[in-house]
């Protein structure tokens, strides 16, 4: 009897190639589909994201017009250029703008968020008004901003004339131009931090404050020992992303001051743009962008760590 059973098993027809292939495909369906999806994406990504970074690093050690000749190796010459005038000034300006913008902007946003967190009438309207400037085009509004400070027919000077004051040629004053660029950047950047900090504040339970108030805590102590510690992660996020953004301001400087007077408001992105596409010194410009990447590396890493921490929680 056992022989017949064995024979019956053996008697099953062998699998056809087609059938084998179908089963193999079924067993490996996930890997097949996964790599079918990822291959084109990774290919595109390698060409347009990874290769450019490597190429940029290489070009930063060369002298190149990018047009007819090929890159000539010059070692660290481009980076050494960054030690001579006006580049240290440009690095200084970039840092100055970034720090002042960030501190003032986050401070104001924190204050506004605290106020909006009170039971105010029309909270949505205020929040909308603070966010709308973020939606405007950085370039067009910068150009509009220039209408305000234009030296002879600008609006600020029309106001000064109406008040019987002598006009001010804003564009030749380093202090004023720095002031206007910072004000403009804060104006456009305030909305996001307000929304984020307000959301974080609204996430704090009332009971925590009430418990502390029962224990006799004053307003200041509530802020210092409850609000700020709970807000810490969101504040770090706002500061890190704000840092990365405000180091890379471009349109405002290009269109409000164009770096003038004599480079005292020039910033890295504008100089890199000019080096690459006006002066056609791609090596020097690449060195500039590598310096930017290095300066921002700490912030970018923190940003990525924040991202992957959110990933671990999910």
């Amino acid at each position: 009897m056992s022989t017949t059973a064995k024979q019956a098993i053996i008697a099953l027809p062998p699998l056809s190639t087609h059938e084998k292939w179908t089963r193999w495909r079924y067993r490996h369906r996930q890997a097949l589909e996964g790599w079918l999806i990822l291959t084109p994406i990774l290919l595109y990504y390698s060409i347009l994201f990874i290769f450019p970074v490597v190429a940029n690093l290489y070009v930063s050690f060369t002298s190149w017009t990018g047009v007819y000749d090929s890159p000539k190796w010059v070692g660290l010459a481009n980076y050494r250029t960054y030690l001579s005038h006006p580049y240290p000034l440009i690095l200084f300006n970039t840092t100055l703008f970034a720090l002042v913008t960030l501190i003032v902007q986050t401070g104001i946003a924190f204050l506004i968020a605290l106020l909006l967190n009170e039971k105010v009438f029309g909270r949505g309207v205020y929040r909308a008004l603070f966010y709308i400037p973020t939606l405007t085009s950085a370039a067009i509004m910068a150009q509009v901003f220039f209408a305000f400070i234009s030296p002879f027919d600008g609006i600020f000077n029309a106001i000064l004339k109406a008040l019987g004051q002598p006009i001010v040629v804003w564009t030749i004053s380093t202090g004023w131009m720095r002031f206007f660029i910072i004000i403009y950047t804060i104006w456009r950047g305030l909305g996001g931090p307000v929304i984020l900090l307000l959301a974080a504040l609204q996430g704090i339970h009332r009971e925590i404050y009430e418990a502390a108030m029962v224990d006799g805590a004053r307003q200041w102590a509530l802020l210092r020992y409850i609000t700020l510690p709970i807000l810490r992660p969101m504040l770090i996020f706002v500061l890190v992303t704000g840092m990365i953004a405000s180091f890379q301001i471009f349109e405002s400087v290009l269109l409000i001051s164009n770096g003038g007077p004599s480079d005292t408001t020039n910033v890295m992105l504008l100089q890199i743009y000019n080096d690459a596409f006006v002066n056609v010194r791609l090596g020097l410009a690449s060195a500039g962008s590598i310096i930017m990447a290095i300066v921002l590396l700490g912030f970018s890493l923190t940003n990525m760590r924040l991202l992957s921490r959110g990933q671990a929680e999910s």
């Binding site: 994406i41 990774l42 990504y45 347009l48 994201f49 990874i50 290769f51 450019p52 970074v53 190429a55 940029n56 070009v59 990018g66 990365i244 180091f247 890379q248 890295m268 992105l269 890199i272 743009y273 690459a276 596409f277 791609l282 410009a285 690449s286 962008s289 590598i290 930017m292 990447a293 921002l296 590396l297 970018s300 890493l301 940003n303 990525m304 991202l307 992957s308």
Partner: peptide
Amino acid sequence: LLSSLMVPGIVFWIPTY
């Protein structure tokens, strides 16, 4: 894929151009 988030956008201007 995530690794490119470490690089500021300015780095891509010149090579992509």
